[in-house]
Design a binder for these strands. Structure first.
Lengths: 340, 340
DNA sequence: AAATGTTACGAAAACGGTTTCGTGTTGATA
DNA sequence: TATCAACACGAAACCGTTTTCGTAACATTT
């Protein structure tokens, strides 16, 4: 077993001081040419690499970013993560991921663990439970300790930090408007319980589009589904009870479930019923017909979040720049489940 | 801004030495009761937490695990990762993820970065390019430096370390046997280019099942598809040219693409053509009919990998235990795309 | 009273780097 | 020849812990 070589080893071997070795390897002009050459050659031969931990301790920065996401087995978060990882890596940062699993406690514990020196900053999307409890003291404390945070997608107004969000209101307004333009009037919304601010925003856009086009709002055309269950029955009843011409779903799972039900009931997609979902994932792309959907550009979102965080971490300004909230523009991808 | 408090701060404030503080907080009986109480109270009040970096430097272990996966936007890897994260977290480890993006260079660079002190061990699945090049010197060097590695799924015999794999051969034999038992004879295999040892294994199981049942192997019934393209045309031709009664696909994307094509061509699933895919992901569960598929139990695989790694890292044995290769038993989930 | 043991704490080294400052040896200048 | 930079390098502090070892003060034993 070849042990990793340290400055001390090199120093001893070449009979110079540790500081000389350190300086030589950084090409300091304090050190004479021959000494430098000797040291460099030796270091290269033994494949010397400085110890990251020692550097972190000395420099008081780790070049690690902490990412906390509610769920990794989820297309949107996965793409955001990929965006973060790519940009961070490119900038010489590593990414430590923790999964909060939608739990407040896990979110808190993970963040506190990482905050004790393991990372220089956080990127996170709030867990469902955190949003429900509306308790953000853990975030505030970390910010207070000078650890920068960037929130994405599931954010809150209650903490002052950088944020990246989707223009949920606007894009769902646009989607519903598309339904209306293509002749639908009875437009349904299938959503989740509303402690998610994103569901809330999507509903807001839905209502706005109706209002803009003088279509009366019908409470019965909104279906709220629990997460992760087989909702086939509820959806079937929903479509049997109501004469629906178009439906906006807040995620792609609901959307494909709808498609199945609708086809089962004998309606033609998109001629009789149009569908738009959220998240341009694998389901949307491989369903038949292919699902029209709102692309959330997760990768772009992750990249932007990472960029904002790294910017702030590396900023040398004495006065802190004001916090920004950046908006990623979602786009409506029109495929086979809508009349285009 | 509240700066994090250190042992030194406490020592100065309470007018004792740093060592006394350290010992008091660890409840050492070297320290008198009152001193201990004073220090503990103070530490608690100021919410003292030891600095992870300093601990890492001192203890020569980081409690971090490096995970290198080829692609995160991929159901199987995502579930494996979740398994790793859950177990690691539970054991007090954090997880640093790097995405190799199927690139040899990224795999090498990322591993070397992390190996310089950032992590205590690796869990990885080889990138496609690494498998193609058959170059594993980076792995061997790290092992040689005493850094433990656990390979999962995409492994190689060329490096001596712990491994976790799926019983690919057996499960695809089982799947094809199921086709045969339910009356199919003309059984196709849709696979990827074979530098993936997993594809290779699945093909082997396929062949074995045919042989066991005295069904002659027909080269024409194997379709090799490039990755990530729209393969609809190729698949359509394939089904038009050959009279096929059942098809095994090495992933779920191929499987749903097949389903679409088959339905388009007017065949009934599963009555005229049966399908089995690999990966029990979102696609399989929400297709119609629901896809019969091979569940790879990624989470279990990840958990096992993490367990093996942590075991080895924490082992105090002087003689190293021999390397093990553990096999995760995949299961065939029979749903609507097969006759059951 | 001397020897010994116990208690309660501090000094210092160590982990692996970076960086500031000091200094002995040159060679050039006045 | 005395003075002074410039050069080339080393000593030591520092980052925040843990841990070994030393020791002053007091108590106990013989």
């Amino acid at each position: 077993m070849k042990q990793k070589i340290t400055l001390k080893d090199i120093a001893k071997e070449l009979d110079v001081s540790i500081s000389t070795v350190s300086k030589a390897l950084k090409n300091s002009k304090e050190i004479g040419k021959d000494t430098k050459d000797r040291i460099k050659a030796f270091a290269k031969f033994y494949n010397y690499r400085p110890n990251n931990i020692a550097l972190s301790l000395k420099n008081k920065r780790t070049k690690n970013i902490g990412v906390i996401i509610p769920d990794i087995v989820h297309h949107f978060f996965t793409t955001v993560f990929r965006g973060i990882e790519m940009y961070a890596n490119q900038m010489g940062y590593n990414v430590i991921v923790c999964i909060s699993d939608e739990s407040f406690d896990k979110e808190v514990i993970n963040m506190e663990m990482l905050a004790n020196g393991s990372i220089d900053g956080f990127i996170l999307s709030l867990s469902a439970e955190t949003q429900r409890r509306n308790d953000f003291t853990h975030l505030k404390e970390l910010l207070d300790q000078g650890i920068p945070i960037v929130l994405f997608d599931r954010v809150t107004q209650d903490v002052a930090c950088d944020k990246v969000i989707l223009n949920d209101i606007e894009i769902s307004r646009e989607s519903v408007t598309h339904f209306i333009k293509t002749g639908s009037k009875k437009i349904a919304l299938i959503t989740t319980e509303n402690y998610f601010n994103v569901s809330e925003s999507r509903k807001e856009g839905y209502l706005k589009a109706l209002k803009d086009n003088n279509i009366p709002f019908d409470e019965n055309l909104i279906l709220t589904l629990p997460h992760d269950l087989d909702n086939t029955k509820l959806i079937t009843e929903f479509f049997q009870k109501n004469k629906i011409e178009a439906v906006l779903c807040v995620n792609e799972i609901f959307a494909v479930q709808c498609m199945s039900v609708i086809q089962q009931l004998g309606f033609k997609i998109p001629d009789e019923i149009s569908i738009i979902g959220f998240t341009d994932g694998i389901l949307s792309r491989y369903s038949s017909p292919k699902l029209s959907t709102v692309a959330q550009h997760g990768e772009k979102m992750g990249e932007l979040a990472a960029k904002m965080l790294i910017n702030r971490m590396e900023s040398t300004e004495l006065v802190e720049e004001p916090f920004r909230t950046e908006v990623i523009n979602a786009t409506l991808i029109k495929r086979g489940s809508t009349i285009n």
